[in-house]
Design a protein around this nucleic acid. Sequence first.
DNA 1: CTGAAAGCGCTTACAG
DNA 2: CTGAAAGCGCTTACAG
Lengths: 334, 334
Amino acid sequence: MISIKDIAKSLGVSPSSVSIVLNGKAKEKRISDTLASKIIEASERMGYFPNQAAVSLRTGQSKTIGLIVENISNNFFSFLAKTIEDEVRMFGYNVVYCSTENDAIKGSELIQMLYNQQVDGYLITPALGMEPDIKKLVDRKKPVVLMDRYFETLNLPYVLADNYKGMRDGMEMLIKAGYKKVGFVTNDLDLIQMNEREIAYKEVLTSAGLLIDEKNILRLKYGFLKEEAVTTISDFVKKTDIDAIFFATNYIGIYGLESIRNLKIKIKKDLGVICFDDHDIFSLYTPAITVISQPVREIAITAVRILMGELGLLKRAKDLHIHLPTELIFRNSL
Amino acid sequence: MISIKDIAKSLGVSPSSVSIVLNGKAKEKRISDTLASKIIEASERMGYFPNQAAVSLRTGQSKTIGLIVENISNNFFSFLAKTIEDEVRMFGYNVVYCSTENDAIKGSELIQMLYNQQVDGYLITPALGMEPDIKKLVDRKKPVVLMDRYFETLNLPYVLADNYKGMRDGMEMLIKAGYKKVGFVTNDLDLIQMNEREIAYKEVLTSAGLLIDEKNILRLKYGFLKEEAVTTISDFVKKTDIDAIFFATNYIGIYGLESIRNLKIKIKKDLGVICFDDHDIFSLYTPAITVISQPVREIAITAVRILMGELGLLKRAKDLHIHLPTELIFRNSL
DNA sequence: CTGAAAGCGCTTACAG
DNA sequence: CTGAAAGCGCTTACAG
């Protein structure tokens, strides 16, 4: 590994001059143009690249972002991860990813690990219970941007879909289409984005003059295996008399499609189906499933932009609490 | 941030003793038990965590693995990433991910970036043309394990599915089921795993006494947008008289299903369908699609095990060229 | 059994 | 306009 010292020695100048020039501060520090160009030429010829560990130790900047998601293998999060990667790369940043699996203990360890690694900023889709650890980060002046969900008690930047409005859109369309008994299948996590969807579900029912029947709401245990989930949804559909079903997330919707298929129920004719969050499966399924699509790409881009603002690489955003509009994609399931 | 010096000062001992104890070398360096336990107690009480940048600079070990995939947002790779994350975490490692998008120029930059970041080891699904950059890594004594594909000219550890055998299995089943004109839709990347699939496709045809008709092979341009791919496959199906179609990857298969649906062709009755690599969509589709499933989890686990061997954290593997068996999952499309 | 010192590669305040 | 020196936080060879 060739170092600044090597370049300095080969040119008979001091390492500090080399450092200054390579950091683009030649003008500022009034290094002569001749010396500057000699240094640049030599560094290229010798194939010099800075040792990030040394830079990091010295400056406290690692040029690395920590990305904490629920599960990197999940569609939504891996797509988020890809956009984040592309966006931060434009600022010269790498990203370290971690999956919490919605476990606060694990999330806490991951934050500690990223902290030790000296990551410069954090993009987090927090699990319930990670609040204190995230607060600690903020206390230590680390920039944090939350995605997909947030804590009402923590005044932090966040970016997510407008879950309330998106859910309202979907529900209103169901009501307008004449459905009267809409089932809702969600998970049992007390996360803000899920809660907002549920609130909208209930509000639309109420304002349409329909009753909220708790029996029509199914809360799937998070961490259910596929088979358990599919069976539970089947049982739920069988024992209620709903005429439409709203799946609160795409993975729940995928399980739900399997349940419905197993029950040999005809989608649209026997049961209207709609899902929050799109997925390749939904457009390919027969019939294609109507969804509320989340602006995943925009969530990632916006979160990165805010984070770069906090890191001083971009103008600081004024608005730090962002709800991005969802899109109702009408297909063939209602 | 509290440092080793702070602990040393608070205890009135030297920083070296603290370092030795915290690295578990108390016995080896014959530090007294009393001092050792005092140091451990203090470090916990004060909430000490090592600054990884400093450790990295000093030891040359960053405790970070570089993961280079084709595209982190793709199902196969994000699942790979999740397993890798879990596996390396057990050794105290983090992982930085990058997507090449099958672009060698980008891949080259990413490798340089990871190298500067001082990652300890590399897990790479290489794009065509990354050979020289990977070779440079090896020359610099960096452990590298290739996944999903490899270079025949580079004697490096690799782990992938047994593409040849998997494809044979699928083709033999098609032949046995009586199909005579099997179409093959692949991409135009000259990657080893794709080549092996094509070789097996041709060999089975030949040994079944059937002709290889180049018109029955479609090579989709990598980077095709969804619409282009769907249309191209539709045109291909229309102008050939194939009785079955073998999709060479899951994303091609997903496009293909859409093409077939657009053409209003009946799967199984009019056209047998099989795909290399499974996906949620295939089991949910009507009819469910028969696939050759890759052992993604095992690929990740094995690759990590080999890498940890190279890093000296595990017994070094003897066998460094691993072809893992695929599984034929028979469903309803033939 | 323990401490002082050197050094990993870099940046920056300071001196000239 | 340029260089020598200090120091980021750690580890390790060396001295005692």
